[in-house]
């Protein structure tokens, strides 16, 4: 999109520019202030934090970060256990969600077959018609199937293809030129080869963008872990549990803040490095004209 510049503009545009720039700076401060405060609190002692939670630390206690790995515990789980749970949930969660959506979107976007229109209509219906309050019924089913607190089976419930990722993939796959896949098929390539060697590489930016967005959501997900995987607490759920307990233990608060910093660094780095990829590839809905 065309860049807005300050120079050679009318007074009206210059005023708008300055007003919005000030607004963006203030909002940026409000958005990063809690992170800065968390960082500051993570290097205090417990006594310092409780004496003045917004005061500057008298000394930098980096040892709080080491203490996280020893003292950040919930029942038999320590920080590394929770980190491990977060990691496997992230990998499995992202792979199954992205793969399921992509596998459904590919044939629907590029082949004609009986039932195609019906399935597409159902996906749109499922995404735009709200059916609320099925949580208890889902828990009943998950319990009956033995999925609750079962890391070997829980992934099946995560493999939801009828979601927003489908809509993004569908649009992306439909937009990929037929030329390459037609040429590959003429050279004798099978459908799987076309999918993995022609389509997926061309759709890589879109797949990567959806994967990163999904990864951030999975990493920070506490609500479903709290219900379905309580025996396998991830970092997000672990932070909730530890904070609840730390409210009563003065010395634990800086450890809590150190743990929050360690746990949010990977996602901040992941996003910062891929911002452009995400913002230009997660698109849905057409462009007029």
């Amino acid at each position: 999109m065309a860049k807005i510049t300050f120079r050679k503009q009318t007074a009206e545009v210059k005023i708008t520019y300055v007003v919005f720039l000030i607004f963006y700076i203030v909002m940026a401060f409000l958005h990063i202030m809690p992170l800065g405060w968390s960082l500051m609190s993570s290097v205090k002692t417990g006594e310092e934090f409780f004496a003045n939670s917004f005061g500057l630390p008298t000394a930098i206690h980096l040892d709080n970060y080491i203490r996280v790995f020893k003292e950040f515990t919930y029942r038999q789980y320590n920080y590394l256990d929770m980190l491990w749970n977060s990691l496997w949930m992230l990998v499995v969660g992202v792979v199954v969600e992205v793969l399921a959506s992509a596998l459904l979107a590919y044939p629907l976007a590029r082949f004609r077959f009986p039932g195609r229109s019906f399935i597409y209509t159902v996906v749109i219906f499922a995404n735009t018609i709200p059916i609320i309050g099925a949580g208890p019924a889902k828990f009943k089913l998950m319990s009956a199937l033995g999925f609750v607190n079962n890391p070997w089976l829980i992934w099946i419930s995560w493999a939801n293809a009828f979601d927003f990722a489908f809509i993004v993939f569908y649009g992306n796959f439909k937009g990929i030129s037929m030329t390459y896949s037609e040429a590959a098929k003429m050279d004798g390539a099978g459908n799987l080869r076309v999918l993995f060697q022609i389509i997926f590489p061309q759709a890589f930016p879109c797949i990567a963008a959806i994967s990163i967005t999904s990864a951030i959501n999975v990493w920070n997900n506490y609500s479903t872990v709290m219900i379905y995987m309580r025996e396998y607490p991830n970092l997000a759920y672990g932070l909730y549990l530890f904070n609840t307990a730390a409210n009563y233990v003065a010395d634990s608060k800086p450890i809590y803040f150190a743990a929050t910093i360690i746990s949010c660094i990977p996602v901040i780095v992941l996003y910062a490095c891929n911002q452009k990829l995400i913002l230009t590839n997660v698109t849905a809905g057409g462009l007029k004209g």
Binding site: I4, Y24, H31, L35, L239, Y256, C264, V267, Y271, Q275
Partner: peptide
């Protein structure tokens, strides 16, 4: 429209989402 510092502002604005609601609400 790429207002001055747009890349930095964007990273700042996404930080609460990246931190996750557990950490954010605690702060």
């Amino acid at each position: 429209r790429q207002i001055f510092g747009h890349y930095v502002w964007r990273v700042c604005y996404i930080i609460p989402s990246l931190m996750g609601s557990i950490i954010w609400t605690t702060l």
